[in-house]
C-alpha cells in the first residue's frame, strides 16, 4: 500500500523518460551493427577495444596500438598514474621539509607590488597554489575583518580564479602529459603564474575605469 503511495508521489520529468529510453537503447545492442552516427548509441562501441600488442611491433607497451574508447582510456590512464604518484610524492616531501613556506617568503615581496594589494593577502594567494577553497575562504575573512576593500578582493579573486590551485592541479591531472610534453615541466607553471598576475592587473585596470566613472557620477566611494 505504502509502495503505491510512494509511486504516485514520485514526479518524473520528461528528461528522465528520454534518458531511460536512451539507456535501454544503449545497453540493448540494437545499434551495434548500424553505421554512421547511430553507432554512438551502442555500449560496446563506447567501450571500444584494447590496443593490439604484437610481438613484432615496435612499440611494445601494454597499452598496444589502435585501441579505442573506454578500454583504451583505462589502459592509458593506468600508464599515467605512476607519474602522478611520483610527482605528488615529491611535492609532499618539498612541502613537508618547508619548501613551500620558503616559496611563500620569497614570493611575498615579489607578488605584492605586482598585484598592488596589501601584504596581508599574500598568505591567501600562496594558499591558492594548493587549494581553491581554502584561499577564497581566507579572502572572505579578510574582507569581513575590514582588512581589505571590496575592490581589492575582486583583484585578488581575479588572480586566484584563473589557474586556481595550479600546483595541486598541475601535478595531479597535468602529470598525464608530463611524459610527452616538449617543454620542461616548470615552464607551464611559470606561464600560469605570469598570466595570473596579468589577469589581476586587467582587473585593476578595469576597476580603475569603473571607479573613474562612478566619481564622475558623484557617487561616494568607500575608502
Amino acid at each position: 500500500m505504502s509502495g503505491k503511495k510512494e509511486n504516485a508521489s514520485v514526479k518524473v520529468g520528461w528528461v528522465g523518460y528520454v534518458v531511460f529510453l536512451l539507456a535501454i537503447l544503449l545497453f540493448s545492442g540494437l545499434f551495434s551493427s548500424s553505421s554512421g552516427w547511430l553507432k554512438a548509441l551502442d555500449f560496446n562501441v563506447l567501450n571500444g577495444s584494447f590496443g593490439q600488442i604484437t610481438a613484432t611491433g615496435q612499440g611494445l607497451t601494454f597499452r598496444g596500438d589502435g585501441g579505442t574508447g573506454a578500454r583504451d582510456g583505462f589502459l592509458f590512464a593506468i600508464s599515467l598514474i605512476p607519474a602522478v604518484i611520483l610527482a605528488l610524492g615529491i611535492v609532499n616531501v618539498v612541502d613537508g621539509l618547508g619548501g613551500l613556506r620558503a616559496a611563500q617568503k620569497l614570493m611575498t615581496p615579489i607578488l605584492k607590488p605586482l598585484l598592488g594589494v596589501p601584504g596581508i593577502c599574500m598568505l591567501s594567494n600562496i594558499a591558492n597554489m594548493q587549494s581553491t577553497d581554502a584561499a577564497a575562504g581566507m579572502i572572505k575573512e579578510l574582507v569581513d575583518a575590514g582588512e581589505i576593500t571590496d575592490d581589492e578582493r575582486s583583484v585578488i579573486i581575479a588572480y586566484q580564479t584563473s589557474a586556481s590551485a595550479f600546483i595541486t592541479n598541475y601535478f595531479s591531472s597535468g602529470a598525464a602529459v608530463f611524459s610527452f610534453m616538449v617543454a620542461p615541466i616548470i615552464v607551464p607553471i611559470l606561464v600560469m603564474l605570469v598570466f595570473k598576475i596579468i589577469g589581476a592587473n586587467i582587473m585593476r585596470f578595469y576597476l580603475k575605469m569603473v571607479y573613474r566613472k562612478s566619481v564622475a557620477g558623484g557617487a561616494q566611494n568607500g575608502k
Binding site: 583505462f74 599515467l80 598514474i81 605528488l88 610524492g89 609532499n92 616531501v93 613537508g96 595531479s172 598525464a176
Partner: peptide, 21 residues
C-alpha cells in the same frame, strides 16, 4: 613524506585522473 604524498597520488590517479581520462 614521500610515501604519504605517493599515496595521495595513487588516490588522485585512480579516483580522479582515471575516471577523467
Amino acid at each position: 613524506l614521500f610515501v604519504e604524498g605517493a599515496r595521495s597520488g595513487f588516490t588522485i590517479g585512480t579516483t580522479s585522473l582515471l575516471p577523467n581520462v
